[in-house]
Simulated scan of single mutants.
Amino acid sequence: MSQIELKDQKGSKLAILQALRVHGSMSRIDLTRLTGLSRATISISIGELMENGLVYETENRLVTKGRPATTLELVPHSRVILGADLDHKAWTLGAFDLLGNAVKVMKIPIHSFEPEHAFSTLSKEITSFSKSLDVSSVPLVGLGVPGLIDWKHRAIRSAADLGWQHVEVAELMEKAIGWPTVVVNRHRARGLAECRYGAGQPFRNMIYIGVGMGIAAGFFIDRQLMSGSMGGAGEIGHITIEPEGPLCPCGNQGCLQVLSAGPAIEQEFRKLVRTYEHTSPFADESMDLQFLKAHDVCELAEAGDDMAAMVVKKAASYLGIAMANMLNTFNPEAIILGGTIPNASRLFVDTATKTMRQRAMRPLSADTIVTTSQYMDIGGALGAANFAFDKNISLSFFN
C-alpha cells in the first residue's frame, strides 16, 4: 500500500471516529452522508475499527423504508482521555471514555493561586492517577482554566480575576508530565460537555453561558466550538452593558461581569444590608458579611428573602439584556445557563429568560429554548478532555 493510500485510510478512520464522537450512534448510510466517504471506504474502515475494539454494531436495527440498517457505536471504556477543570480552589481531574462516560474522578485542592503552584499541584497527581486506571489512557490532557486563552490553546493570555498574565500552561505541563496539553476556557469546556452529552444534545446550534465568579460563553455551530481568530470568541463577560458602570478588572467600565457575576451579587447584597440595616430571617445573624458568598444570596432569594431576591433579579436582568443581544445576533436553537449562580437560583434563570424575551426580536426569541446545564462538577473536565482530543485526534493513540 502506498503512503498516500495509507494516509487516506487513516484519515477515513479518524473521520468516522470523530463523527461518532460528536454526533453519536448512526448507520453506515448516515456516516456516508456525514463524512462524504464512499460506502466501500466506510465498510473497510469500520471493519478495521471493529478489529481494534473501538467500534461495534448494535443489535437494535433502525427503522428504514428499505433494508434494515444496524447502528454503529463507539465501544465504551475502550480508551480514556484525561481532562481537568480549575474552580473553587480545586482541580477536578477526570478520566472519560470516548462516549463521555466518567471512569474515575478526583478532587485536587490547591492552596495558592500562584500559577506555578496551581499547575504543579495538578501535574504531580496526573501520572499516578493515570496509572491507577484499569483502562489505557490516551497520552493527552485537556485543561479547563479561567481567562482568555491564546489561539493555539497552549497559554492563558489573561485571567484578570486571578491577576494572571501570559501563563505558558502547556509548556509547564508538558515539561512536568511529557504529554501534549491543550488549554481551553473553563466555561467553554463546560459548554462543550453540555453540547455533546448534556442539556445541549438535541441541538446543533446553541450558546452556553457560564455564570460564576466570572462570565463567559461558548458558541457552538453544528456541535463544534467556535474559537474565533484569536481564541476569544465568547468573552461576553466583558461586553459593555452600562457605559458609566463599575470599573472591571479588565480596565473597562460597566462590563457584564461586574454587574451579573458572583462578586457583583455579593457586593450588592452587602451594600444593601449595611445601608438598610436589613436582617434576613433566613440567615444566621452571626454571619460575617465578608464571608457571604453569591450562592448564599441565591439560597436566601429562593427561600423568600426580599432583599436577596432584589439583588438576584437585578444581576439576572443585566444577563438577560446580553442574552437578547446574542439571540438577535446568533439566532441559536437554545441557550444553556450553567455555573454556580444559575444552578443555585431558579429565580436568576427565570428573570434572565424573561428579560431576554422582552428585549429580543419576538420572532427569534419565541422558539429559542432556555435551560440549565446538566453537568455540575465534572462538566469542565469532560469538555476539556473532549476539546483536547478534537485538536489532537490521532490513530497512534490507539496502537
Rank of each mutant, 00 (worst) to 15 (best):
G178I: 06
G232P: 00
G210H: 05
V273T: 00
E268V: 00
C255S: 05
L259W: 01
V183C: 11
G245N: 11
Q374I: 06
Y375V: 05
D85R: 13
L17I: 15
H153I: 00
T279G: 06
P263H: 06
T355V: 15
Q267Y: 05
G191P: 02
L319P: 10
V211K: 09
M213C: 09
T32H: 10
F96V: 08
D390T: 04
L99H: 07
S112R: 06
A217E: 14
I81Q: 04
A95Q: 04
G24P: 03
S25I: 04
S317V: 04
Q267S: 06
W164P: 11
M287H: 02
I378F: 13
D305V: 10
Y318K: 10
D296M: 01
G198W: 00
E48R: 11
R359Q: 15
M310Y: 05
G210V: 08
F397N: 12
A159D: 11
I16P: 06
G144Q: 08
E299G: 00
G198Y: 04
A84G: 13
R33T: 08
S123N: 12
M230D: 04
G212H: 09
S12W: 04
G83Q: 11
K354V: 03
E194V: 08
F96C: 04
Y276G: 08
P115R: 14
T58Y: 09
T329E: 03
S120F: 14
F113L: 15
V273R: 00
S317F: 10
M226R: 06
E266V: 01
C255I: 01
R186F: 11
F129W: 03
K124T: 09
